[in-house]
Simulated scan of single mutants.
Amino acid sequence: MQSTRLFRFTAAAFALAFSTTSVATVLVVRAAGPSSKVYPPGKALPESAKIELRSGDSVMLLNTNGARTIRGPGTFAVATNDSPGAGANRRARFSAMRSSAVPLNPSPWNLDITQSGKICVANAGKLTLWRPQKDDAIKLTIKGAGTEQTIDWPAGTDTLAWPAALPVTGGSEYQLSQANSGDSARVTFVTLASAPADNIGTAQSLIANGCNNQLDVLVETAPSMD
């Protein structure tokens, strides 16, 4: 009797594990058009699902392999047979063409000093500043939380560590000003309890907290499955 119960428990556990691994999650990260209310950003779908789009609809889906955009009208399978390798090659070609214009932020966790808005921070001790133009040296003044600090950013460097003396706490707001150009941005920190495990978890956290600039970077750097 005990061996029978053990067999049933093992079989049930195996079935549960199989069903969990075989039903992957796909996340809506962008939506426009008449059906955008049905498929809002943050909506999770199983890979077995199909979505119905009307004329003018556009939905971008993200899974663990990359991102792809579906445009209506029509009924479309959420799953794709495209390989992540092929998508990565297309993304690399896209990035190469894009590099002649505005450089792409390499990580959604970098703080782009040219963008205002909410910034989700998973590791406050390793927050990195990033700038799209690195040819010239600049002076960056960061003001907020009752303090102010000006840092020298050397030419040829596009990243710099956030000053340790300035607190990175949830709700704290800072203004970042460049004396050379007069450009400025205002950011508000949202601190996360821990770093998400994968792109899906990252996208869900960014969407839930309104960190839209970082979501754009995540989508742009994901391999294209189109």
Rank of each mutant, 00 (worst) to 15 (best):
S35W: 08
A96V: 05
R91I: 00
R98N: 11
P41F: 06
Y39D: 07
R71A: 09
G66Q: 06
G66P: 06
P84Q: 04
N65M: 10
N65F: 09
A101Y: 10
Y39S: 12
R90Y: 02
E52I: 02
G85S: 05
N81P: 05
N81A: 11
S55I: 01
P73E: 12
D57R: 08
S36L: 11
G85W: 05
G42I: 13
A31F: 01
M97A: 15
V23R: 05
R91A: 09
A96L: 14
F18E: 03
L104F: 13
L104Y: 03
V78H: 04
E52Y: 04
A44L: 13
G56P: 01
P84W: 08
V38W: 08
A86F: 14
T20M: 04
L16G: 00
R71V: 11
S99L: 03
R30G: 12
L53C: 01
A49N: 09
E47P: 00
M97D: 15
G85I: 04
N89H: 13
A17F: 13
P40K: 14
I51N: 14
R71N: 09
S100G: 15
S48Y: 02
L62F: 14
A24E: 10
P34E: 08
G72A: 00
A77Y: 07
L53D: 04
S55W: 00
N105V: 10
V59P: 07
T80Q: 05
S19L: 12
S22M: 06
A77T: 12
R98H: 12
R30F: 10
G87C: 04
A15R: 01
G33M: 14
P40C: 14
G42K: 13
S99C: 05
S36K: 13
P103V: 02
L61M: 04
V29Y: 06
A101M: 11
V102K: 12
G74W: 04
D82E: 15
L45H: 06
G87A: 06
G87W: 03
M60F: 01
T64S: 14
T64G: 00
T25K: 10
K43W: 02
Y39G: 10
F76G: 05
S55L: 07
A101G: 04
V59W: 03
L45K: 09
A31C: 02
L27T: 10
S107V: 10
N89K: 13
L104E: 15
N105Y: 02
T21Y: 10
E52W: 02
V23E: 06
N65L: 02
N81V: 08
V59H: 09
K50E: 15
K37S: 15
A49G: 00
S83Q: 01
P73S: 07
P46S: 02
A79N: 07
P41T: 08
S22D: 01
L62T: 13
L62K: 12
R93T: 02
L16Q: 03
L53W: 03
A44N: 12
A17L: 11
A67Y: 01
E47L: 11
Y39W: 09
R91P: 00
L45D: 02
R90E: 07
A17Q: 11
P34V: 03
R54S: 14
L16H: 00
